[in-house]
């Protein structure tokens, strides 16, 4: 029986990692843009990103744009592999149900 990665298998983190997986290869997305796409509050998104970051699934970088601090987020190779494994496990579990 395949197991679902508990780091990914939670609504907000699943939506976040799915969205980050759609950002182009070698690209980073601004935290503010990601927040808008996911329709989440900054605090909530930060909390979930920290869990994904702790697992090594995303990389968060802080930079300065003009005079304003900006945060960018990207999925890591480990994150991409974990998301792919999650989707595979999900498909297998759903196939087992039918």
């Amino acid at each position: 029986m395949p197991e679902l990665d508990p780091i990914i298998h939670a609504e907000s983190r699943l939506r976040a990692i799915t969205t980050l997986n759609e950002v182009g290869e070698g690209d980073r997305i601004a935290f503010t843009k990601l927040r808008k796409i996911l329709d989440m509050t900054a605090g909530n998104l930060s909390t979930h990103l920290r869990k994904l970051e702790d697992a090594g699934y995303v990389e968060v970088t802080k930079t300065i744009e003009g005079r304003t601090p900006a945060t960018y987020v990207a999925i890591t190779l480990k994150g991409k592999a974990a998301f792919e494994d999650y989707r595979k496990a999900l498909r297998e579990l759903l196939a087992g149900l039918s």
Binding site: A10, S12, T18, M40, N44, L94
Partner: peptide, 19 residues
């Protein structure tokens, strides 16, 4: 999506729909 209670178990069909 403001709630921090979404660590609760996710139904498989809901997970697929969310993705």
């Amino acid at each position: 999506h403001d709630a921090l209670d979404d660590d609760r178990p996710l139904d498989l069909h809901t997970a697929l729909r969310l993705v």
